[in-house]
């Protein structure tokens, strides 16, 4: 292994460790369990979305609608509980159904209507951004709000639902790990195992790399592509549930950064371990990388408005790692 290979393979992990060491030395309290949990919590929702979009990247597609799926799910959950006065389970089921439906429609548009993936999901993004505002005529949803017909919505977020955003599990230290972090970790392990160790995951990679060869090996290529968008939609709606539970209201203005942050995490993931391809482990590390960097900079009093700049810079460096340095990207 030449130094160059070594740099490609372990460069990003080394950079992550270096950052952690640096922030530990440079700030007070960076290396505490609470700070670590805070980092995980800050990237939980984007991380979940990023893991979903990874599935579409694996089959050679892309999903730009994930951010708006998440906010639509958030609004739907709030609407179900506040306006329709349903319980937490119904709200969660509605969100998941939305994710599945959007995934199926995206997949259908791309596979059968032959709309290029970026354009189909861009269209879906616009559609959902608009759709989520229609039931309340553009208002945010909270208990006591006035509905378009003049009535007052009296439902409340059920405690069970809010617990998804606010409950913390004991882990050596009482009340340490929030539910969202647990969800992130579970989903990360699930999708990682699915992509790396099941035949379905392997076929998805084959579909992404050479769809013709996959078809000639007997794979139902169209079905795999559609399933990838369903996975992406469901993950995004789970992200939306976590967002709603954290905010405790259906906030029309929230979730603006979700799409870019999660796509960035998935693309940064290409550079992890020199994979040069979408992978769940890389995506998780990518999300964590951004979280560590922002948390550290915040603790060093960097102003909030530099955050997007930093994320963008990290993404560009990661892409250079992937495409310029690694040979596999150069095909």
């Amino acid at each position: 292994m030449t130094p160059r290979d070594f740099a490609i393979k372990y460069g990003f992990i080394a950079l992550l460790l270096g950052l952690i060491v640096f922030f530990t030395l440079a700030t007070d309290g960076f290396a505490s369990p609470q700070a670590a949990v805070f980092i995980f919590q800050s990237v939980a929702i984007t991380g979940v979305l990023a893991l979903g979009v990874t599935a579409t990247l694996v089959v050679g597609g892309f999903d730009l609608s994930i951010g708006s799926v998440a906010t639509t799910a958030m609004m739907a959950a709030a609407y179900a509980m506040v306006v329709l006065e349903q319980n937490a389970l119904v709200a969660v089921v509605i969100c998941i159904v939305i994710g599945v439906l959007v995934g199926l429609i995206n997949g259908y548009l791309i596979v059968y209507m032959r709309v290029p993936d970026l354009l189909a999901t861009l269209g879906m993004m616009f559609l959902l951004v608009g759709l989520q505002r229609i039931p309340t005529e553009g208002r945010s949803i909270a208990t006591g709000m006035t509905m378009p017909d003049g009535s007052v919505a009296n439902g409340t977020f059920s405690p069970a639902f809010l617990a998804l955003g606010r409950h913390r599990f004991d882990f050596f230290i009482p009340n340490l790990i929030p539910v969202s972090v647990v969800v992130l970790l579970i989903l990360a392990v699930l999708i990682w195992f699915f992509l790396e160790y099941t035949r379905f995951g392997r076929m998805m990679y084959a579909v992404g790399s050479n769809p013709r060869a996959a078809e000639l090996a007997g794979a139902p290529v169209k079905a795999y592509k559609i399933w990838a968008y369903v996975i992406s939609g469901v993950f995004a709606s789970i992200g939306g549930i976590l967002l709603a539970a954290r905010l405790g209201r259906g906030d029309i203005a929230s979730g603006n950064n979700l799409l870019l942050d999660s796509v960035a995490a998935a693309l940064i993931g290409f550079a992890v371990l020199g994979a040069a391809k979408p992978n769940a482990f890389g995506t998780a590390i990518g999300a964590l990388f951004v979280g560590v960097l922002l948390q550290g900079l915040t603790m060093m009093n960097a102003p909030y408005y530099t955050q997007d700049f930093v994320k963008g810079a990290v993404l560009v460096v990661a892409l250079v790692f992937t495409f310029a340095l690694s040979n596999r990207g150069r095909s």
């Binding site: 790399s209 050479n210 060869a213 996959a214």
Partner: peptide, 22 residues
């Protein structure tokens, strides 16, 4: 064009059609 999955190594390419059986 029709055979090689270039992101896959030799054994992954070989097992491609019969993954379900393996």
């Amino acid at each position: 064009e029709n055979g090689i999955v270039k992101d896959f190594n030799v054994y992954e390419n070989m097992s491609l059609p019969f993954l379900d059986r393996i």
